[in-house]
Design a protein around this nucleic acid. Structure first.
Lengths: 245, 245
DNA sequence: GCAAAAGTGTTCTAGCTACACCCATGC
DNA sequence: GCATGGGTGTAGCTAGAACACTTTTGC
């Protein structure tokens, strides 16, 4: 039997298959420099009317990344933003409908680009501030809607926690923080520090942050000074920078 | 329609689904303290008689982790060893048979436990030393069989490279190196250094490594001195340690 | 004047690097 | 005696943390 014959006679549906979804944690930093996560209220069973991470099935002729991108677009109207694969969750009973494997992702989106609306599968969509209270996750929307970690459906609590850990960890050895800037072409050191603080969940020393910024980003040419000053975040004019890569 | 009714009427096979496999990079350190990777020679189409990473389909009622564990057992006879999920690869055309999404893993196995034989799907199985030549991956078996990175089937080159990068990176902030020790209950500092050097691909200063070992592992109680000396790796007797966790 | 950010300087520590040096021992 | 690992010591560099200080400016 040649390879060609083999392929022609191969039956892809011989065995029962799990379904695969791409789920996305959509993070943003709001105007008050707080970390927020987009959740949707489910319109359909299972867990109708509960809050969950957006996601959708991976089609037969698209990659998982494409499915995640599509989902991000549907949910937020964003054509391209930072998107990274997080982890694949596959507990057998994680979905009551049937066997579903979820490839979780996270996206970083500047708040002013976020134009979300309830999608096809969502009765509602909201941004929730992320807090840690008594070592447990708490999610609070602007209108006061409060979710405890146990209120998250499926295994979404695990996904959110892993996402937060990864995000916080990557601040130290990558350039992802820049993805949350309002404007990568013109920003101040303080603005970036706000993003760091929001993700790390603590306020760092401004003087030290400046030095870190200069040695790690300016000296290494990830960023350059531009001929522009800003007083958006302070009374005194501040030097603006441009993100290069 | 209640949730119960919804679930009862739900058809899991409404849409075409991709297949999912768990593939696994099985790393070991050989007697000469070199990093090796287990590859199998494919017995079936596609890519019959080519070398590939072991892997298998994820069944409808097992998690991806379970499938990877099962694969590790089948391929190496190892009941439990270090296993970690690496990344999910999903390019649409990565497998000529059909749409297959691969959740790649890596396993760390001490060489003396490695009792591999060709499994059901393999005509042969071999350990390959990992080298970088001209910035490209080269794999060399003890019998001289040499593979270039382009000889790896599917997208296995990408998987191997990502695995190596992750492995090397995790040495700096985790305890995975201990998983490759012949005996976690009794080992010398030199033995651990050999593992580090093999993975990093360079020899580090022994004196400095000792100090790092003591401040990072002994002082932090990941490891403890035991009442035993070894001369397996040197003429002079060396202090033995025990890995705690 | 006060608060808050812009920006600089200082001091201390911890960790890593590159060494140089001892000891023990098998060949 | 020489190579090799076991083991310690030292000096230098760097990044980070903690903190003090000066400047600008809107309120």
């Amino acid at each position: 039997m040649t390879e060609k014959e083999f392929l022609a006679s191969y039956d892809p549906d011989k065995y029962k298959k799990p379904s695969v979804t791409a789920d996305i944690l959509i993070f943003t930093i709001n105007k008050s420099s707080e970390l927020e996560l987009l959740l949707i209220k489910r319109k359909e069973h299972p867990f109708k009317d509960k809050w969950a991470i957006p996601g959708g099935f991976v089609g037969i002729s698209e990659s998982v990344e494409d499915a995640a991108k599509r989902e991000l677009l549907e949910e937020t109207g964003i054509e391209q933003g930072y998107l990274e694969q997080l982890y694949t969750f596959s507990k057998v009973d994680r979905d009551p409908r049937m066997r579903i494997i979820s490839v979780a992702h996270f996206a970083l989106v500047p708040w002013q680009l976020l134009n979300f609306k309830a999608g096809d599968d969502a009765a509602d969509a909201k941004l929730f501030k992320i807090k840690m209270e008594n070592w447990e996750l708490a999610l609070v929307a602007k209108d006061g809607t409060t979710l405890h970690e146990k209120d998250l459906t499926f295994d979404h609590k695990d996904i959110v926690l892993m996402g937060l850990k990864r995000l916080s960890g990557k601040l130290d050895y990558s350039n992802i923080a820049f993805e949350l800037l309002q404007n990568k072409e013109c920003f101040t050191i303080f603005e970036l520090k706000q993003i760091y603080d929001a993700i790390k969940g603590k306020t760092s020393d401004l003087g030290n942050f400046r030095r870190m910024f200069k040695s790690r980003y300016v000296s290494e040419s990830h960023v350059e000074e531009i001929n522009q000053m800003s007083d958006e975040f302070s009374k005194k004019k501040a030097q603006c920078y441009r993100y290069i890569g």
